[in-house]
Design a protein around this nucleic acid. Structure first.
Lengths: 217, 217
DNA sequence: TTATTATTTTAGACAAAACTAAAATTATAT
DNA sequence: ATATAATTTTAGTTTTGTCTAAAATAATAA
């Protein structure tokens, strides 16, 4: 697997988490900031390598092999992010670009040992889950925001209560379907939280968090 | 600097440590296991980038800029080797290939922090010195093997005593001019050492080590 | 000094991964 | 249902770094 191939597999893997069925050429191109024609070239190549199934004009779908390769790249990315934050004291929002490079280092043994060195973490510093060595990501689950713990995160997929007041509140806070919410802190005694939405961090009460559904991956 | 460019600069840097004047196209090709014609192409490109001075049919010589870039790649390589051995418990002879990849990760901040995390080591696990952040390698010095400390290493450049017995002893141990000697252990009270020569490790007395000149880089 | 050998460079090709422009296909709207 | 729009693919280039084969230069030997 070349660096470019790995990046394509990774992008398609992420798109499959959000989309049913085949992933379109255009969607891949957009997510990778490249041209659709380049995507066609690469997708054909990956199909020959049995990393995905590709049908002209219909789109691509990862095979079991392709999904495993992609998950492994993501595993490496997230383990390196943990290293950068926990060991080198980077801030969690500074590590993405460096991890983007480190994720392509080729050595199974290295990742095995890095994982042990870091204490086999389950989540990266953004709260995203780290796939296990078989490439398995914990199944996606829909839960209440209130059920999340510190350092976890979810994507807003709906509300339990849908009063105008509540929706207006969410709107004011820039929370809508698809918004990523990260739990920065959680107070044990009253269930209140500090959450991060885009670049803002703010406090929310338990009343809010128990009325918001999030999808965790 | 691309990955290929960095590797060329690194190779030329190493060759300049062993050779006076210009480095020949052939020497570079051999050290990089590539064809002389490829070297010509790259060396012309690096000359345009002011990384080295190149004269047709004569060879190449690094500029101050090129030397700095090369030293920085070597610094990164050696710092990562320290990380792999000290933190991830790799054996010192397993780390080269992985460090070959890690040395190309682009981030000044990363190396600054890695260096601090490792306690700003002066030598890598093979005893090779780590250039400082300005790319400066400690000047090459000729000293007696006896003056080296544990984990340092040198290249045999001569003997103080030159009796037949001594030279025969060295011959038996496969030590000659150019042989790399690494100090694996040193006994404080009598100055005896355990040294590594190629794949062999063995004990030598102080009598031996104080009659052998080594060059340290 | 001239012939031979070794080294180095040039010229032309190739593979990977990207791009542009144009053609083909599918989807949408009247 | 057909015209228009959107998407996707194809064809042909470009760049980077490599290669082979042939030509040019330098070094060596007779």
């Amino acid at each position: 697997m070349t660096l470019a191939e790995e990046n394509y597999l990774k992008a398609i893997f992420h798109l499959e988490l959000e989309t049913e069925g085949e992933i379109s050429t255009n969607a891949i191109a957009e997510s990778m900031d490249t041209k659709p024609s380049s995507v066609t070239d690469m997708v054909q190549k990956l199909a020959e390598k049995k990393m995905l199934i590709y049908k002209r004009y219909k789109g691509a779908q990862l095979t079991a092999t392709g999904r495993k390769v992609a998950a492994n790249v993501i595993r490496k990315h997230r383990l390196w992010e943990v290293f950068l934050v926990e060991k080198l004291n980077f801030h969690w929002d500074e590590v993405h670009e460096i991890a983007e490079q480190l994720e392509h280092i080729q050595s199974e043994e290295l990742i095995t040992r890095l994982d042990i060195f870091l204490g086999s973490p389950d989540f990266d510093p953004h709260g995203d889950p780290i796939p296990d060595k078989h490439g398995v990501l914990k199944a996606t689950e829909k839960k209440l925001l209130a059920e999340l713990e510190k350092n976890q995160q979810g994507i807003c997929v709906g509300v339990k209560e849908s009063s105008a007041e509540f929706l207006q509140y969410l709107d004011k806070k820039n929370i809508s379907i698809g918004t990523k919410i990260s739990v920065i802190g959680k107070e044990f005694f009253d269930g209140s939280m500090i959450i991060q939405v885009e670049e803002d961090r703010f406090f929310i009460s338990h009343k809010i968090s128990e009325n918001l559904y999030v999808q965790t991956t």
